[in-house]
């Protein structure tokens, strides 16, 4: 599924620049070590982590985008770093669990 389609249908906020990308699967974790071990290239990563080093992890594994849930504010330094490395960060006011319900609704499956 195209990232833009997900952004539009679920109503995600664009916190960084966004480019055309394909999303393949969803990964949920708040641990970077977990991302490094188990996330897959092209995953949409749902997390409450907002530290700069999320960019480091997302870029290494080539994740489609980071979605920061629970309406958490993302620090400017994280956004700046993400823009430089073409890492896309999106935001949602929903909880991780609520967002999953919406993602199922638009057809994303495990």
């Amino acid at each position: 599924m195209k990232l833009q389609e997900i952004i539009d249908k679920v109503g995600l906020k664009k916190l960084t620049n966004v480019e055309v990308r394909n999303v393949q699967g969803v990964f949920i974790s708040d641990m970077l070590s977990d991302v490094m071990t188990n996330a897959k290239s092209g995953n949409l990563w749902l997390t409450v982590q907002t530290h700069k080093n999320t960019v480091s992890a997302a870029n290494l594994i080539n994740l489609a985008a980071i979605v920061v849930t629970h309406g958490k504010e993302v620090p400017q330094e994280t956004i700046d770093l993400a823009n430089r490395f073409y890492v896309i960060i999106l935001g949602s006011d929903l909880s991780t669990y609520e967002l999953v319900s919406k993602l199922i609704g638009i057809g994303l499956k495990p």
Partner: peptide, 16 residues
């Protein structure tokens, strides 16, 4: 450089 690791996993600082 941005290290991939998890700091503060045991801390209980409440988010704003």
């Amino acid at each position: 450089a941005e290290v991939i690791k998890d700091v503060d996993m045991l801390s209980l600082t409440l988010p704003e």
